[in-house]
């Protein structure tokens, strides 16, 4: 795995089968641990290809590749996978959990019931309960998936990136983004799960210091969801990034700065704070 020269990849047995993880940890590395959970249709590599090495310069980093069986999956299954990796790789040492998109849903659910495993929680472009705008997109997705996968790849590119990001690229560069998109075998089952997300009850139980990051031009988990998470979690701070849903690709450096500052001192900024944008 070429994520990072120090990353070792392996599979552990989870409750629903094997779970792949990537871990830069090695004996004698006493740096704090950050655990990354990717989003729908992604992997540690495809969603965190840049963020992972950025974080690895300062922290031990573990990435979990969520396993989604064809037969369908529930949030609880994904929570069990993450907990299995935490217990196998970082037992007795609270980690900074960072979830992106569906990974944020999973991270929030982990935090609700496993607070002692965590030192902090970062929810990037996440959501709590799927709403009708998201279900309409999900419906279009399903129809394109069944009828026209080429159009589907274009549609997914259109909805994942922010409009300023796409507009500032040449047609050839946009084409390359479309062509590079792979439709993971797990996608239909994951999209089915996305239609039905409701973790409102779990979110109310979160006591871990939390950073909620919402993306201004997000069309997939629009920023109102992040604002709502900020309202729902007692010990939460809020930051915005000027990107679409694909924040980890559009502006990994800005996200890195937010995450690195937060996980290094989760309670330095009091709950309820809206972080000032970083000016240059």
């Amino acid at each position: 795995m070429d994520l990072h020269p120090d990353a070792v990849s392996d599979v552990i047995a989870g409750p629903n089968g094997g779970v792949r993880y990537h871990d830069t940890g090695r004996p004698g590395d006493f740096r704090s641990t950050v655990l990354l959970i990717h989003g729908t249709g992604g992997t540690t590599k495809s969603h965190f290809g840049t963020l992972f090495p950025m974080l690895a310069a300062r922290h031990r980093v573990i990435g979990v590749d969520l396993a989604v069986p064809d037969g369908g999956v529930e949030v609880g299954d994904l929570v069990n996978d993450v907990v299995a990796v935490l217990e196998a790789r970082a037992a007795g040492e609270p980690v900074a959990l960072v979830g992106y998109s569906l990974g944020a849903v999973v991270a929030a659910a982990v935090a609700a019931d496993h607070a002692p495993l965590l030192s902090s929680l970062t929810l990037v472009a996440g959501w709590m309960r799927t709403d009708s705008q998201q279900r309409l997109r999900n419906t279009v997705w399903r129809k394109l998936f069944e009828r026209d996968q080429e159009a589907l790849r274009e549609y997914m590119t259109f909805t994942s990136y922010g409009s300023p990001f796409l507009a500032s690229r040449t047609d050839a560069e946009v084409r390359a983004l479309v062509d590079a998109r792979e439709l993971a075998a797990s996608l239909p089952a994951t999209m089915d799960l996305n239609r039905r997300i409701d973790i409102s009850a779990e979110v109310g139980r979160i006591v871990t210091p939390t950073l909620v990051v919402g993306a201004v031009d997000d069309q997939m988990a629009p920023i109102r969801h992040s604002r709502l998470l900020f309202g729902a979690i007692d010990d939460a701070r809020f930051a915005e990034v000027a990107t679409g849903h694909a924040v980890t690709v559009e502006n990994p450096a800005y996200l890195f700065k937010l995450v690195d500052d937060f996980v290094s001192a989760p309670s330095a900024v009091p709950p309820g704070t809206v972080l000032e944008p970083i000016t240059v």
């Binding site: 070429d2 994520l3 990072h4 020269p5 290809g49 840049t50 090495p53 950025m54 310069a57 300023p164 500032s168 000027a242 502006n251 990994p252 450096a253 800005y254 000016t279 240059v280």
Partner: peptide, 21 residues
């Protein structure tokens, strides 16, 4: 201005010695 700044910061990861980048 900020778009240029953060894009450059993103490119910095290429200098850290991660072979794939």
């Amino acid at each position: 201005r900020e778009g240029f700044f953060w894009a450059n910061e993103g490119r910095y990861a290429q200098r850290r010695g991660t072979p794939s980048l």
